[in-house]
Design a protein around this nucleic acid. Structure first.
Lengths: 337, 337
DNA sequence: AGTTACTGTTTAAACGATTAAATCTCAAAT
DNA sequence: ATTTGAGATTTAATCGTTTAAACAGTAACT
């Protein structure tokens, strides 16, 4: 069992104190006036013994772990998976490591994760918060732990956040369908109190209202209920007296399940029903009809979140920052009349 | 700035030594014979002050971080994303935290990741190794750091690993096409020295050979080259004098790019060309023709990897374990004559 | 009274690193 | 010869925990 090499081991091997070794290996020779030759010897020995500093000990001493805790709502969703990747890359630029976990839209899991990560002394958090986690966010704030919310935020709590303009994007998507000549536009959304979803619904309703015809044909499904409920809601929209001619899906998972069902029902896009999706997804490439979708600026969200967080970590007095980014809107055949 | 609460703070507040507090909060009252009433007081105070132990300090003292380092070849691939999730869940059962990074099939990145994670004192690694990382694996072994390889391994190095039987799965997939009556079966694979890929190719070749007709129509593409090369290779298979009537894709990414191209070329599956894929993928649900594919037991790979790793961590003398799991083979329309 | 045996609590070293302060060595300046 | 001071190195405290060992107090037994 070859134990790990510590500063002490090197010190012993060279015949000096650990202080000297520390100075040399941290390039503080100048300030500490370390002898030139001995510095060389130490450096060589460290190499030779394959010394790798113990980050835990460093962190303990310095009170900084150079670690960011990332809590996502659902890692299996490519939307979040891609944000995770961006955040990891961006953090690495500043020598930060990311530890992440998925709350799976579950407040308990979220609480556990935050606790574990605090115990591991993360320097700050990036969180896509879930329903009923306001209190957790409040606690972080009270404890003066730096954090940035992404994708969603709580209007009642003053925090850092980076989101996309969901209202604007949904309005534009709906308006696009209206302008294209569709008249009974349905929307499938999740039923929850999260701001991003509310905003998307609000954007849709506003656009319908502004067009001054028909009424909003909104169906909401519960996150936990799965595919079955989505299918029921689509049935309602299709079979209602207000038979829809276009459908707006509020997220990529809703799109996938919804489109699969349209396929099953042999409804052709866009002839039987036009489709616009919020978010994209690899799978769309295989759909027979190219899909129109709202393209959120994932990379920017991730980068800005990291940057704001690091600013806050390095200056806890900093004011909270709120960023709302515009999305792209990619128009394809699925929304053509 | 409310600083974090430490054992010492609680000790001071209650008026006892830190030792007592430590014993109580670690439920060692029995062994340490702590007074019943004082224990209660301490516990209450800890609650009240919202004490959260510093895991770094614990780890430093104990020499165990309860952290696993996970290095994947490509986190954007759902195959790995799902394994990551399984590993996280399984690790959590044993109170381990997972820190992961993606090597993106790049030996340099892999080396950096391993170094960072060692500095953070992970107790062990789970790694899907990339080309030209043998030396890194050798180093880990020499340093006596517990690790388990997944998906791929190096035949020349005796290590723990959990893989799936790639030869068997590829053989079966090819045989299935042969039995269905296809006669010129092409294969698109990555050109690299990694064992999992070699085994898939070997399985394919063996099946073709055993069938005693035609010769293997194998095309290999480089990982870095992207879609263009895949398209060229498919063209060669389609336009060659040995025009293929079936195609076997060696990975899910190859499948996606390949199928998109078949679509573009207006080749119908399975009428113009039958298809079998290695690995599955959400996107497959949208393909007009349900796809036949090899379904690797992801969850089992993840769970076994964690379990073997933890066994090794807890008993460094333990013999290396090699596990090869059988895959499922899901037959759909895409391979029907 | 003196020994033994608990019970309850504190002391102090340790993990691996950092770093201000103390110490030691010489050579130059007085 | 003594002081000064700069250069080189060590000492020791510290971060937050854990834990063996030491210590103190009380009760029971001889």
């Amino acid at each position: 069992m070859n134990k790990k090499v510590s500063l002490k081991d090197i010190a012993k091997a060279v015949g000096v104190s650990t202080a000297l070794v520390s100075y040399v290996l941290n390039n503080k020779e100048k300030e500490a006036r370390v002898g030139k030759e001995i510095a060389e010897v130490i450096r060589k020995k460290a190499m030779e013994m394959n010394y790798q500093p113990n980050q835990l000990a460093k962190s303990l001493k310095s009170g900084k772990s150079f670690t960011i805790g990332l809590i996502l709502a659902d890692i299996s969703n490519p939307f979040f998976a891609n944000i995770a990747r961006t955040i990891e890359d961006e953090a690495k630029k500043y020598n930060y490591t990311v530890i992440f976990g998925s709350s799976d839209e579950n407040a308990e899991k979220s609480r556990d994760l935050i606790e574990v990560l605090i115990e591991r002394q993360v320097d700050g958090f990036i969180i896509a918060p879930t329903e009923r986690t306001e209190s957790q966010i409040e606690s972080l704030k009270k404890a003066n732990i730096p954090f940035v919310l992404i994708d969603r935020y709580f209007p009642k709590i003053q925090t850092n956040y980076v989101i996309t303009d969901n209202f604007g994007a949904a309005y534009r998507a709906t308006k696009h369908l209206i302008d294209a000549g569709f008249e009974r536009i349905g929307m499938i959304a999740y039923k929850n109190g999260l701001i991003h979803m509310k905003e998307r619904v609000r954007g849709y309703k506003q656009a319908v209202k502004d067009a001054a015809y028909g009424k909003a044909l909104l169906k909401e499904v519960t996150y936990e209920m799965g595919e079955g409920e989505i299918q029921d809601k689509i049935d309602e929209l299709i079979n209602g007296k207000q038979k829809i001619d276009a459908l707006f899906f509020a997220t990529n998972t809703l799109s996938i399940h919804g489109l699969k069902y349209l396929n099953r029902k042999k409804l052709r896009v866009p002839d039987d029903v036009a489709v616009v999706c919020f978010d994209e997804c690899d799978a769309f490439d295989f759909f027979y009809c190219p899909l129109t979708y709202v393209k959120q600026p994932l990379v920017e969200v991730g980068q800005q979140a990291v940057n704001i967080l690091l600013k806050k970590i390095n200056n806890p007095e900093k004011e909270e920052e709120q960023v709302s980014l515009a999305s792209d809107f990619v128009i394809k055949k699925s929304s053509a009349k």
